[in-house]
Structures are given as C-alpha cells and as structure tokens.
Design a protein around this nucleic acid. Sequence first.
DNA 1: ATATGTGCAAAATGTTTGCTATCTA
DNA 2: TAGATAGCAAACATTTTGCACATAT
Lengths: 148, 148
Amino acid sequence: MSRIERMCVERGLKMTGQRRLIARVLSESEDHPDVEELYRRAVALDARVSVATVYRTVRLLEEKGILERRDFGGGRARYDPADRGHHHHLIDVDTGNVIEFADAEHDTVARAIATRLGFELVQMRLEIFGRRLPAPPPATPARARRRT
Amino acid sequence: MSRIERMCVERGLKMTGQRRLIARVLSESEDHPDVEELYRRAVALDARVSVATVYRTVRLLEEKGILERRDFGGGRARYDPADRGHHHHLIDVDTGNVIEFADAEHDTVARAIATRLGFELVQMRLEIFGRRLPAPPPATPARARRRT
DNA sequence: ATATGTGCAAAATGTTTGCTATCTA
DNA sequence: TAGATAGCAAACATTTTGCACATAT
C-alpha cells in the first residue's frame, strides 16, 4: 500500500481503484506535478482513469490535508504531498525547475510578524525565484577576479 | 496626471484615453484589485473601455515593471503597483483581506538562501495566511500597555 | 443496499487573440 | 500618415459539473 494511500485510509476515504492509482503515482513522485502530468503518469500504469477523476481526487486530497496546492507560475496548479514536511521553494526562472529547502528562521520570523499584526499564523508560503549563477569562480585562474 | 500615468509616459508608452483611465484607477486604488474589479472601477468613470483592454493593459504594465502580478488564491490574478516599494502580504484567511508589510530581515535571508543554492535572487514572494486573533486581552484598563 | 465515486461531454472561468476600425505621436 | 491600440466576439486553457452507470463499504 502506497504512502499516500495509507493517509487516505487513515482519513476514512473510500478507496477505489483510481484513487489507489493516483495515490500511488503521488507517492512515487518526487517533484511537483500538475494535474495533466499526474494524469499522464497514472494512465501509463492503468488506462482506466479520466482527467476529471484526477481533478476530483487532488481536490479531495487537498481538503483532507494530504496534498498542498502550489502555484509556481505557468497557469496550472501543482501538487505537493504535505507529508514531505514544511519547506519552501526556489524556482529557476529559466528552466522552471523547483528546489525545495527548509528554513527555520523564516518560519519563526513569519510567526512573529503575524502576531505583531494581530493574527494567528495559519500557513506561510515563501518562494524564491532565481537565476542559476554562472558556476563558482574557477578557483584561481591566473588572477583572482573581484565581484563586479 | 496620475502617478501611474507618469510612469507610463516615462517608459514611452503611447497614452490612449483608456490607458489614462486605467492608470488613474490603479493610482487611486490602495488594495490589490483583480482585472474584473479594475474594469468595474474604470467603467464607472468612463464607459468607453472593455475588459480586453484592461487585460492587455495590465499585462503591458507588468512587462514594463509598473505593476506586479500576484496570486492570493481565488483563481484570479491581482495587481500591485510596483512603486509601493518592496513588501509582502498577510492574507486574512476568513475575509480575504490583504495587509501589506515590509521586512528587511526576510529579504536578506532569502538572498542568502538563493546564493547558497547557487542562484541569483530574481524575485521573492512571501505570503502569510493568518486568522485574526480574538482581540488583544482587555488590557488591564487602569494601567498602560507595553508593546508586544 | 446505499451512499459515494467515475466517465463523458458540456459548461464555467479567467485570459488571450484575430480582425477591423480608431487613435496617438 | 504610419503604426500602435481598442472593441468585439471567438478561441483558449484549465478546472468544474450534471447525469447515468459502476463500485466500495
């Protein structure tokens, strides 16, 4: 039984073949797939699924707190299993690649800000959009260069 | 001439009546309206605009760096004049209200993270979702309160 | 047995675009 | 006047939904 399927069962969801399939695909994914991609991966394993079901399922899993919906630009929602733990994202603006990272300091500061403004922190979202740096300076190429 | 219109002119945009109108609406807005809302406010001032033009204009202004597009959930893009300075958002999960705040520390840390991961920071997005706290403790009346 | 889930195609939503008329610089 | 822009409606892309049938508990 896949990791995500187990979470579904724990929450008392009725498990159909397609939900099991989608749960499996999610469990085996290490990236942040969108619905179309999930559908593609699912169909490859068992053609008896429809996109509509994928949409319905991710929505359900989001409501149950099993998935988190993300928006990294590009117009489609992308999904992130909640059990990966709290983390943030760095998106490569050129390639669209997403790197996950955790940062306790940000979390602490965010909570403090919420409190200061009279709110209880429910969730926070930190996304950094960046461009890959040229590659670390070639050690010492005859002469060290200074930053421009 | 409205604040935003001035920015358009500075960037050499051809100013039509509708662009002037939209620029004015943006200049007078202190929230983060979506296209439909911008259109509503614009039409109220002068009916000779279409939604298509609002879409085209916000996209143009975004490309020119005059507006920043935001996503606070809810499916529609919302716009934020870039000249308000760098800031982040706290969204009230119950009402959808958005509060702006600045936080230099976050910015510094974000830049450091990007660098550590081998990226140059292009942009960052920090959103805090919170729920309004019950109201500060009735504050021992007869005695002055300290800042939290 | 009964409530719930699925597939399909149609509809809803938000946004973009082709074309012609119009306007700015 | 040349070239960019506006309006309109049709086109798009993504996501939701109504309905008849299938399935899990």
